[in-house]
Amino acid sequence: MTGFVTWMIGEDPWECLQLLVSGAFGSGEGIGYTLFYTTGFIFTGLAVATAFHAGLFNIGGEGQAYLAGLGVTLVVLAFDHTLPPIVLVPLCILAAMGFGAAWAFIPGWLQAKRGSHIVVTTIMFNFIAYSLMLYLIGHHLIEAGSQNPTTREFGQASWIPAIHQVAAGMGISLPSTPLNLTFVMALLACGLFYLLVWHSRWGFQLRTVGVNESAARYAGINVSKTIILAMCVSGALSGFAAINELLGSTHRMNVSFTNGVGFVGIAVALMGRNHPVGIILSALLFGGLTQGGLELSFEKPVITREMIIFIQGLIILFCGALENLFEPFIAGLFKRKEDK
């Protein structure tokens, strides 16, 4: 389908596919950028998956990342010239997790205590977060004398080391990219997510609430507490997307720093079946599409960013929405082989 659309606008589908893949994985620089985008998608994918296991559809990752970015910015602007990196960076991480969790707590509480639908409240909170950030940056946090809605550059004490800098310290030469140690945190978060959800008491309670809330309540599980805590954990995970972008790449706050990472996380979680391994793979796919799409649109200006979003939508459609269309046929093939 994507190839047909590409052909309809006068471009060679095979050439475009080659440019897309080579732009994402054909060079060290391309791989670095792909993994950088993948990092943010992993965190927001895990955030959506956490809530989903509790039967909640948290689509507020974008707003939670916004508020996490506010927490990071306030800490950095206050202490980046006084605290050493070993203190400042962990403090920023705690601020990101705290602000993200606090922003997710409100929809979680409304769902648990008042029955407000989580989808409606998280959508509303995305817009509230954006408007709040626009006001704060435009009126209070903007760099003095700047016409752009952005803060001053963060002090280097708050910067998370880039992977190529770490590699250089070990005598390994890598291309300069924004890929930073937050990527390692993302992989560790996947491991912790697996242990928490499938090998802990709280994870069992979380999944029980998600499968059957009435049965969970009958079994003595505090459903309201589980829902609220699930949303707080989800918001805290979304906060790491702000860490990746602000402390690992741009080193300043602007109103568009999230770049839709929270919304892509929804697709990542759904395609990854809310499992950490699947989330890593689907995040890598969307990271490759993001980086490869940028290279493709540079080489082929007729293929715009909207076309790349269209391609992502088709992937979600055929890999996710049409799952039940092909599953019976494939399952039937395996069943016939077993019968023989």
Rank of each mutant, 00 (worst) to 15 (best):
G3T: 04
V5N: 10
E15D: 12
A24I: 07
G26Q: 02
Y33Q: 13
Y37K: 13
F43Q: 02
F43H: 06
L46N: 00
T50P: 02
A54M: 01
N58A: 05
G60S: 00
V76D: 03
V76A: 07
P90L: 02
L94F: 11
M97S: 09
I106P: 00
I106T: 04
A112S: 09
I118T: 09
V119K: 01
T122Y: 03
I123M: 07
I128R: 00
Q147E: 11
F154Q: 04
A157D: 12
A157N: 12
S158V: 01
P161Y: 03
M170S: 13
G171H: 06
T182G: 13
T182N: 11
G191I: 10
Y194K: 13
H199E: 09
G203C: 02
T208A: 15
V209K: 05
G210W: 05
A215G: 14
A216M: 06
S224H: 10
S234E: 00
L247Y: 03
G248A: 10
R252Q: 14
N254K: 07
S256T: 14
S256L: 12
G272E: 06
N274I: 11
G278H: 04
L281F: 12
S282L: 03
G287K: 10
L289N: 03
L294P: 06
L296D: 00
P301A: 09
V302M: 11
T304E: 08
M307L: 13
I309Y: 15
Q312P: 03
G313T: 05
A321Q: 11
A321K: 10
K340E: 15
